[in-house]
Write a protein that binds this DNA or RNA. Structure first.
Lengths: 190, 190, 190, 190
DNA sequence: CATGAATGAGGATTCATTCAT
DNA sequence: CATGAATGAATCCTCATTCAT
């Protein structure tokens, strides 16, 4: 791959992330992305089939990176409960340190785009999570419900809390975080 | 003067609800609403100051109705845990029986409009919930966390589950629902 | 005439004058006038055939009043040159004391409306001026040019000066005014 | 990329000029301009930032051309009074030969747009005039008033006369013109 | 690979006016 | 006399995308 092209792609992604975060998904147009990336809007169509394609690819890339980063320090040998709390803590920290990425993902999740992600990307998105919870179930530590339900109680309350935190309506104290970790665990544990 | 057509307002609300549900909030334009309601788009501005005003008023109306309906059968005398499960069950049933309303509210919650709701509507939106959880806290049945956090663990996982159910990716069995009621209670109870 | 109706008409005129002055002629809509006058916009059509009709009638009324006021203190017996300077001075003072009226008239003069004034109003607008200059010509004090040309050199430079003064780009000192009186007189005198 | 069609810009300017002249500034919409220029209205936004931008650029271009043309034959060596009369005569001739340009400029001057001209254009608009009158003042031929006042008495009466001529209410004879030249000179000379 | 030019479709909103009461 | 309701036409402008170079 040539260096120059690499930069252009990166610029497009960066500009998109910045715009969606600052102006919102619906205010992010191709021409605004192009202007921020210092390229012609038609150049975007050299790299992506459509605006939708661009947004989906950015989403998948960001979520994949996030998953890898969060699961990175989880060791197979540790106790599951411990791992769970570390995982959720990693998630919280990642979000707080990368608010742009979080806000982009959230906007995407709640847009019609979410249902247009091609199946081929599913593994990238869910595999790490699935196998983690599978392990917990095999050890009979988790309620006998679908993995999906377990992830729902793990992530969504946290996501909501932090969204509210970002909008300034709630504080995010250590005690808050500790509560959340406990509440999520209480929800899913046997 | 011409007599006001009571149906017209209803038609506008209905058309809006239908469009947001089927096409999405960002694809819902004033002219599409007007066309579906069989009126001129300028007529909408007789009833509402702006598109934003229309959407907010519809949201508040729907959410108020939903709250009333959900809390209707909750009796003060019952045991709190029992009331909680009935409440959550009512919520689930209401959503399932009124998918349009649910989908509209969800889209609205996750749009920039949510932060533009005038304060004067806050009571309509939050009062019933707040006083319910307050009662549970006074009986020392709930974790010592903010009411906000309690509602987050009550509603958001359910909301997420049902959204996934509507998108066809998950089934919604009685056992599923029973699990959810239990998980939410486990999350918030002392 | 009923008192109440009188007020309504006055309110419409006042609101129109205020709006044209503050927002400009093109930003003055019937509905804005109605709102400012605290009436329904359809009520305006009880008093006037159209927006155009309203504006023209207001214009004629204002200009007639101005003419009367300016010529009021001119005495037939005085020397013409003296009368001329008093007249021009009256004009300047009237404008400065009634900037709204002046700005309205100027906007009207420079709009397509000006050419739509029905002939029947011409007398109201020009008669006093015409007969004044006629007198000067009869005394052989003025250049042998059309009365129209005389009025042009009398009023328009003054109008321009004061418009620029209102826009803040120029000061309006006594010496300035004295210069203008002299320059206008030099232009038209034999 | 497609090659830029030089004619397109010209077409837009021509269409705008024609419309403002025939229908008036306030009746000149972007879509009408586009239709007359045989392009899509969105194409106009390829060449100009906004309607305002288009009108200002056209105005500056026309006025610059006019200034150049009028001052073209003025020689530094001639007597000032002679130059002045030639200049004013050139102005009159230019206007009569280019009524569209004159009417456009007049409408623009009397619209809110006039106050929105960016400072960077000021030199293009005023420099030639300013330095001309400066010369006259240095020779002590002109009244001791601001240059602004001198230009007011030079141009505005002429402008007014010709506007009335165009509207058909007055004739424009050689003797008329000769009178105007004299009256303007009498107004500004010492 | 890269891009400036070009566009039809559509966006929210305001307009002057008419209508029925 | 007075008016609230209703509207079709029009406003400026942005959109995602395509085209020819």
């Amino acid at each position: 791959m040539r260096r120059k092209d690499d930069n252009k792609l990166t610029n497009i992604f960066d500009a998109t992330l910045e715009l969606v975060t600052s102006k919102g998904l619906s205010e992010t147009s191709v021409s605004k992305i192009a202007k921020k990336a210092n390229i012609s809007s038609s150049t975007i169509y050299v790299y992506f089939e459509s605006k939708e394609d661009l947004l989906i690819k950015l989403y998948v890339k960001l979520k994949k990176n996030m998953s890898k980063s969060i699961f990175d320090s989880i060791e197979n040998s540790s106790e599951f409960k411990e791992s769970f709390k570390i995982l959720l803590n990693n998630f919280i920290n990642y979000i707080i340190e990368n608010p742009d990425i979080f806000l982009f993902i959230e906007q995407f999740n709640n847009s019609p785009l979410y249902n247009k992600i091609p199946q081929e990307y599913y593994d990238d998105l869910y595999q790490l999570h699935d196998s983690f919870y599978q392990k917990g179930k095999e050890q009979n530590l988790l309620k006998d419900v679908s993995i999906y339900l377990l992830t729902v109680y793990t992530y969504y309350p946290v996501v909501q809390l932090i969204k509210t935190y970002f909008s300034g309506e709630v504080e995010l104290t250590d005690s808050n975080i500790e509560s959340v970790l406990q509440m999520s665990w209480d929800a899913i544990k046997v």
